[in-house]
Amino acid sequence: MNAIEIEQVVKTFGAVRALDGFDLTVGTGEVHGFLGPNGSGKSTTMRVLLGLLRIDSGRVRMLGGDPWSQAAELHRRLAYVPGDVTLWPSLTGGEVIDLLSRMRGGLDERRRAELLERFELDPTKKARAYSKGNRQKVALVAALASRVELYLFDEPTSGLDPLMEAEFQRAVGDLRADGATVLLSSHILAEVEALCDRVSIIRAGVNALSGTLADLRHLTRTTVLAETARPADGLTGVHGVHHLQQHDGRVTFEVDSDRIGDAVAHLAGLGLTSLQAHPPTLEELFLQQYGERLEP
């Protein structure tokens, strides 16, 4: 069974269609990266999953239940960290962690102590005195200290320093080892690349792409640099080759990843002397998706 199933969900705010027939499936035990430009509907999706927003149409199932009508029961089995944590100014970090964990239905004392140490958080400070990064750590400790089935992270590491970011990645690794499901919205591509089994890209309220990173790379183009003995003019005729440039016997072009064999075979016939090919970096992948630069 899948941990999260979202089908054709529409959510409007006045004239704005924040989710416009959105689909997303997250398998149980999967760490799923959730990517998209600012304002594309990531936080709206999270808030729908939390039962804070009521969808206009479509179908949402989470942990086998309905996030709107069974919110409180389902929330005992999940933990959530928002990207912009607001806390009660007069409560200390330690009090907030206890409060949220108790309301969720209990916390793991040993884990709480261990996480406070790992994240170097002083639990006696009042929330109004915490920096943004420290407020974020309070929410992270409160979420990670609970043993639950599903973790919803909405840009959880914004404001964290690189050491703490690394701690977070380790913590998610532990969650994965324990068999928990994670939906991780993030702009930090290295984080997504390191942690996620599958990713989904949302754009303007629509799921633009879902799959493993390998799948996504396969869908896009590989950049090829080659030197050939004879001019490579004939390449333009090979199916799937784009942006061909020639200079002094060196040729650079992009090729659809599933056509790379044809292109290399063609180059071999021209007396190939040197060849470099690199798959698209994650950045290229996202820039293509976010900016709609991928040609048909």
Binding site: L52, H75, A79, P82, L100
Partner: peptide, 8 residues
């Protein structure tokens, strides 16, 4: 929001 994301 933080409270409602728990079992409350």
């Amino acid at each position: 929001e933080a409270v409602l994301a728990t079992g409350t």
